[in-house]
Amino acid sequence: MNLIVIAVITLGAIGALSAVVLYFAAKKFAVFEDLRIAQIEEVLPAANCGGCGNPGCHAFAEACVKAEDFSKMYCPVGGAAVMSKVAAILGKEAKETVPMIAVVRCNGTCAHRPRTNIYDGATSCAVASALYGGDTDCSYGCLGCGDCVVACKFDAIHMNAETRLPEVVEETCTACGACVKACPKSIIELRKKGPKSRRIFVSCVNKDKGALSRKACEVSCIACGKCEKVCEFDAITIENNLAYIDYNKCRLCRKCVEVCPTGAIQELNFPSKKVENN
């Protein structure tokens, strides 16, 4: 009995003492933080992907509170919905934004682009790209080691084992831009998602002369200029032996897709006109 009393008293005393110490420590070392930061953090996706340019969601929330020009703040993951909530907390106006998506601009599948050597280094595009041009004759195309897949926090980009190219999952891609930064070949681009996810883009980044790029890959852009001529909206430019479609000017008329001799221009999510030869 005595033992129990002593135990209760000692433990109780230790507990009480600790509580007092903790209480004063919490008071003394408390860091003041704008309450709105916590509120904003609450509505953010908490993915800490860094897509906004800040190191994590907490930093973004801080930046939002501090920002003089709120229109520059944007969470690509949460999109307009989240930003309007953030704006409401801060009593500011959220700007209109267009949904974006990551687009892989290389169609050099194993069938289209023959492998000319065997890469046997560490499985990392960054390592391979620092070493050499890649395991095909195209030194611009996808290396297939999947740095973009590793970089994606949303499981929205996967390697297709057959084509050895990454594929973006439309539903889960948040256009945070992590894969864009991870790709050492700058193949992935954030483009306008488009109405009903319909988009047209040049699926090639090869800047070699036409003959060289064609030799390396069947579906490369050879910069023949047909698409540039056929485009009525001045959306296509050819620079450094490579065509590029400005997604802000493109009206999705698909004329360029039809004239492209190599099939380098790709259309996505359009209702099929004819049976596509894949």
Partner: peptide, 9 residues
């Protein structure tokens, strides 16, 4: 392990 591959990177 491909140590040097990564160290070079």
């Amino acid at each position: 392990r491909p140590l040097l591959d990564y160290i070079r990177l």
